[in-house]
Simulated assay, not measured.
Amino acid sequence: MKHHVTTKWLGKMAFESTNPAGTLKIDASPEDGGEGNGLRPKALMLSAVAGCSGLDVASLIRKMKLEVDDFVIETDAELTDEHPKYYSEVTIDYHFHGPALDEKKLQRAVDLSVEKYCGVMEMFRHFAKINIRTFFHGK
């Protein structure tokens, strides 16, 4: 399967990128010559890995008929000091909230996403150390 994305320069440091499901704006921060009116490319990569894994986990929550009131993924990453700067270490925290959490099954859902299903996670493994943490918050 092939994916195609079109990214058009809007002037200064701004771009509009269209993927199969929608359009987003990319821009640099003011200190980097942009106006700060768009998403940053490297941070988009973090959104991509969290979104990819989140879709897997949400699907497994539904299939396993698990009770979850809220599910949040927090992602932090360390950039290298030298150019080209890239993420050398990424920490992904999965937070599940609810009074009746099945911690064992939710952990299994996270593990399946991280180890088997999430293609973006697999791409990240080629350039970064990945740390996975899971937190359960009863209400």
Rank of each mutant, 00 (worst) to 15 (best):
C52A: 06
C52I: 03
S53Y: 08
S53K: 05
S53A: 09
G54N: 04
G54P: 07
G54W: 05
L55I: 02
L55F: 07
V57E: 00
S59H: 15
S59A: 13
S59F: 12
S59N: 14
K63G: 06
M64H: 03
K65R: 14
K65H: 14
L66M: 05
D69E: 10
F71I: 04
F71C: 01
F71W: 08
F71P: 05
F71T: 01
V72T: 15
I73V: 14
I73H: 12
E74N: 15
E74G: 10
E74R: 13
T75I: 15
T75K: 15
T75L: 15
D76W: 13
A77E: 06
A77P: 10
A77H: 08
A77Y: 06
A77I: 13
L79I: 11
L79Q: 12
L79N: 14
T80K: 02
D81N: 02
D81Q: 12
D81C: 00
D81L: 09
E82R: 03
E82Q: 05
E82S: 03
H83F: 08
P84G: 06
P84R: 09
P84I: 09
P84F: 05
K85C: 03
K85M: 07
Y86T: 10
Y87W: 09
Y87N: 05
S88G: 05
S88E: 03
S88Y: 00
E89I: 08
E89Y: 04
E89M: 02
V90L: 00
V90G: 04
T91P: 04
T91A: 08
I92V: 13
I92C: 01
I92Q: 08
